[in-house]
Design a protein around this nucleic acid. Structure first.
Lengths: 346, 346
DNA sequence: TTTAGCACTCGAACGCTGAGAGTGCTAAAA
DNA sequence: TTTTAGCACTCTCAGCGTTCGAGTGCTAAA
């Protein structure tokens, strides 16, 4: 594939800009008048023809303007789009919002999804950070009423799991605290397998608690990733490519299944020619999902490598504002990584 | 308003059934042939005319069939719809799903929203149970690294809040445990104001922790309700009344704002003539929201009165399957109430 | 290499028309 | 008095031809 001339790059960029703005096929006259080009429509037509032959543009029909093809978008994102950052004032505002919030993963994820959606003007998806290895940190037992005990299990990395247990007989808070202290001393930093392999001289209460702990840790192990948070579905429904409500329904369905992000990540790590600053851009489903044929996904991982990682991304029509989306995703991935690192429980 | 004859009730019911099924205006011939009525289309026409004059039906235009009016739906839901329960096999399956899940409010709410959406075939909304009065139960302090401490605060009713604190200087786990024990003894069962009013002889560490506790409890007090969980937005997008994507966008926007349920509840407690078994049905927005003019909402409160209450509901087009929606909402409200009561931390 | 000129193409919009569904009215039947 | 058959009337919708205009590709001149 021959290289594009500078003028061709310019024209491709303009076509994509204009198409993203208006959602209508772009014609030669329109380009010249709208962008005050110093060459004539005829020249533009020749270049459009060339770009079409190279596969970067399509014509919906003979006498319509041009529309970017999947390849066109890919070329644009990979080589023409100049990287930009979010305005630093916006960055500060958002950072502030996160820091003034109490430390609570659930709240953070909701805020992240909300910010991602409103900034990128697309649908957003965020998974909570999930430890790659589940390690014991601390257990706490709180007597409530009768034989019920509230167990709070803290994992290394800061994940907290709560569970209400029912014991075979009532136990005092003192006994519970003693059992918790004992287990905390014994299990510190161990993973599920190591704990299961241990054979310890425990009394009945301690053994019962240990069983619950192992069960809970095994569940955490089994989870492929954290919970998925969605927001901004509204942004997508309004777009003209989803005016066909059946198309819209199927795409939203895919989002609501809440497996998309993980599927995409496990399916292929090298997704595009040009993953920018850790941000991956997937255009037109890139073969993986039929429902995504008309969509693009911008995604990134975040977290503390080796300890706890999560994913976040946005989904929109192919004519999404890539600059905005990429800079938002990159910024939020960085911010969340920072937050995770800061609050990591060691 | 004069009473309806039995035949008029029958015909109104059939029109609503048929319209809910097909989303198309219902004509006299269609009714007679489809339901094998033993009177003629002309008779049906007379009745349709009477029902239209009484305001229970509308004609989109002179020569179309009839469509239920808001009043028609209200009459139907209030007086004609016979109450039904979900099949007990389904009830068992769902109950089982909840009970085999570990006790975790977040998981329960997600499951509830998901079940509600799939059973009622509409968009579902669930708010987490929120205590009407925030009372102290227990605090736990876990040393992590350096000056960071993970605080886990348990409220009466079982709500758990976690927060990562940064102290002015490193403190050992022993000191932390001692401080926690002291506070637990002093604050048991108190509310925010009572704790603030207390003047206690505390050392610096204890006082710092107390401040965090008060801050956290004040936040919980300030929250009007628990987090809002959404699901099944897809169900709504597919409906023909939302094929106008602008209409759909505005309605979904309302859902994504996540204030709908609480707004509805605070705005008016007596919502319809016939709240059935604690379930309230709101048809056509009933004056409260313009965006809801074409929607109906079925909702109920659940929880342990006086201790912790939440709300759940479904939103769909006016021609939603009310029987299904109402029985699903009623069943889930009951089930969640049971779960909340069972696991209440006293 | 660029550009003006021009014939050509094709979809969108518009208006017309006929078919069909459904009504309301009237008068006869029950 | 109630029900029903008959019938004229109304209004939407789908189909169809036509026009309009945007945009193209080609050619020949600049």
């Amino acid at each position: 594939m021959e290289a594009l001339s500078e003028r061709q790059k310019l024209i491709l960029t303009l076509v994509i800009h204009e198409y993203i703005r208006t959602a209508a096929p772009v014609g030669s006259n329109h380009l010249v008048t709208h962008y005050h080009l110093d060459f004539s429509p005829a020249t533009v037509r020749n270049e459009l023809q060339a770009l079409t032959e190279m596969g970067y543009l399509r014509q919906p029909h003979t006498s319509a303007g041009r529309v970017p093809s999947d390849e066109g978008y890919r070329y644009f994102v990979g080589r023409l789009l100049q990287q930009s950052d979010m305005p630093s004032s916006t960055q500060r505002t958002i950072t502030h919002q996160f820091y003034q919030m109490r430390h609570d993963t659930d709240q953070w994820m909701r805020l992240a999804a909300s910010v991602l959606a409103s900034q990128s003007r697309a649908a957003s998806m965020v998974t909570a950070p999930h430890p790659e290895q589940v390690l014991y940190k601390h257990v706490e037992l709180i007597a409530t009423r009768g034989r019920q005990v509230l167990m709070v299990l803290v994992m290394l990395g800061g994940e907290i799991r709560q569970r209400l247990l029912t014991l075979s007989e009532p136990v005092s808070q003192e006994q519970l605290s003693a059992a918790a202290d004992r287990l905390n001393a014994l299990l510190q930093g161990k993973d599920t397998l190591a704990i299961q392999a241990l054979s310890l001289p425990l009394d009945a209460l301690e053994q019962a608690i240990l069983d619950w702990v192992v069960d809970e840790m095994a569940r955490a192990d089994a989870l492929p990733s954290g919970e998925v948070y969605l927001d901004g579905l509204t942004n997508v429904v309004g777009e003209p490519e989803f005016s066909d409500s059946e198309e819209a329904r199927r795409t939203l369905r895919l989002l609501e299944e809440r497996t998309l992000l993980n599927d995409l990540l496990t399916r292929s790590t090298v997704l595009t020619d040009a993953p920018v600053g850790g941000v991956q851009v997937l255009i037109g489903g890139e073969g993986s999902y039929d429902e995504l044929r008309r969509c693009s996904v911008v995604l990134a991982r975040y977290g503390a490598p080796g300890l706890a990682m999560g994913t976040l991304g946005v989904l929109g029509p192919m004519r999404m504002p890539y600059g905005r989306a990429i800079s938002t995703v990159r910024f939020l991935a960085g911010l969340l990584s920072e937050l995770v690192a800061d609050t990591l429980v060691e």
